[in-house]
Structure formats: structure tokens, C-alpha cells
Nucleic acid binder design. Structure first.
Lengths: 131, 131
DNA sequence: CATAGTATTCACAAAATGTCAATACTCAAA
DNA sequence: TTTGAGTATTGACATTTTGTGAATACTATG
């Protein structure tokens, strides 16, 4: 596993640095965190919810499981094994920790800044188009 | 250099696929394209403009130069060397090509979808907070 | 028993990023 | 005239992230 111990390579859940726009921005992670804040769930369920609630289909389940492992390593989630589920093998159910809630809040701030930048782009682009 | 020949690893300027949210999203590239659509410029200038117009400081110039090379390789930009600039070494001035304009448009669609997802996040998050 | 759906993890190749540094030209101060 | 600062661009290589394919496993149904 990558980084570890320092969130997601940045100050999430810790510092509160501003976004580094030079690199790509994550978008499924905050969504996952939000879903987990509302209700604990296991990876497979999250994949379904991302599709249902946010229309994110064609998402390799790997992406979700991997993100889950990273978040767990960051201390944002705590897992419990749910034996005896309706069917299939045991499920690893993740619950958001207090650190995870903090990370979600930090991330929502970042989403907001991203939104502002998007607005700036939109404005400038529409000005450009109607030139 | 990476991929090449097929845009940015995705259908920009070509296909018109919808975003793949599972991976990180680029944000400086569309901004660069927009700046170049308004006015041709060289890398160093773009770095300044990104800071002035969009508040993007702390951006490693490498990021910009690298993106410029990729976009040139994708046929979105065509460069000209500007000898005899006010001072310093020759500047490589990039102009947006028609393909580049198409890429900008495709990207703006994607930015819009990203904006919608951001709104969905925002709504869900504020509902969660006031629970 | 074979198969399909539910669930999770590992491993390795490929791609993207971070970083350090080399190269070069101009102007102004020492 | 040597030095240093600001302007500009590029290359190389280590590290991180992603993409992909597949292994493992349990349950219900045909």
C-alpha cells in the first residue's frame, strides 16, 4: 500500500491545506465518505450506492476497495466483519471514525473550492464563447 | 512522454465519453486551454496567468510545461518560437488549434458534469449536517 | 454438481507525478 | 567583468497511482 499515515498524500484529516490544483482531484472518495457518514456499509454495497445515488456506473470495484483500504489505514474508517450476511462470503463493514468525519469536513471545503474554480472557468468560458 | 496520440488517455478532442469519476480529475488543463483560447502565450506566462486569473499559486512550473508538451503532442496546440523577447531566452508561444478548441469544448462539458456532481455532494452533505 | 451472484484481496504492468537539475539568455549591481 | 537575479524551457529518474486480470470463497438455485 502507498503513502499511509499522512492521509491521502495531503493534509486531509490533519492539516487543512488548500488544494493543489496542479494534480488531479479525487471525486469518489468524498462521496464514499459521505455515504459512510450516513450509514455504515461494505465495499460492494458502496459500489451499488455510488451508482444509485450519484449515477457513477462503470466504476471498477477495485477503485472502491482500494480507497477503502487507504481510508482505513488513515484511520478514517473502522471495519467489522459481518459473518452470516444474507448470502455470499463475510462482508467487511466500515464505519466512519471521528477522524473520518473530520476528513469529510475537510474534503467538503475542498469540494467547495473546486466548485468556485469551476464557476470561474464557466464564466470565463461563456464570456469567451460569446465574444 | 506518456500515452500520446489519443488525447489525454481519454476521448477528449475525439470521442466525447463521459467522465470516469473513479480516477482523479484534471483541473489545470482546461484552464490552460481556456487561457490559450483567449490569447496565445508561452508556458512561463501561463504560470503567471493561472496565478493572476485563478489564484493558482504554488503550481510547479513543470506541471504546466509538461501539460503543454502533452497538448502539443495531441495536436491541440501549435508552437512558434519567439526569438527576441523583451529579455531572457527564446519563448515557445502556443496557439490553440481547431482540435484544441474542440478539446476545450469537450472539457467544458466535463467540467459541467463535475459541477453537477459537486452540487449533488453539497446537497447531500448539508442534508447530513442538519440531520 | 455446475453456475451465477455476492464479496474481497493480491500482484504486477503501465501511467502520472514529484523533484532535482541542466541549459540559456538579459539586465543590473558590485 | 564577474556575480546574481529573473526569465524560460527541457530532461531524467524515483516514487506514487491506476489499470487489469485473476485468485479466493461462500451461498443459493437449476
Amino acid at each position: 500500500m502507498p503513502g499511509r499515515g499522512r492521509g491521502h498524500g495531503r493534509g486531509h484529516g490533519g492539516g487543512g491545506l488548500r488544494p493543489r490544483w496542479g494534480r488531479r482531484m479525487r471525486v469518489v472518495e468524498p462521496l464514499m465518505l459521505l455515504l459512510l457518514a450516513q450509514k455504515s456499509a461494505h465495499g460492494y454495497r458502496l459500489v451499488e450506492q455510488l451508482a444509485e445515488d450519484f449515477g457513477i456506473t462503470d466504476l471498477p470495484p477495485q477503485t472502491v476497495y482500494r480507497a477503502l483500504q487507504e481510508m482505513e489505514a488513515s484511520g478514517w474508517l473502522s471495519p467489522t466483519w459481518d459473518m452470516d450476511g444474507a448470502q455470499g462470503p463475510p462482508r467487511k463493514v466500515y464505519r466512519l471514525t471521528p477522524d473520518g468525519e473530520a476528513a469529510l469536513e475537510a474534503w467538503s471545503t475542498e469540494m467547495e473550492q473546486l466548485g468556485q474554480m469551476l464557476d470561474a472557468f464557466k464564466d470565463a468560458y461563456s464570456r469567451f464563447r460569446s465574444r
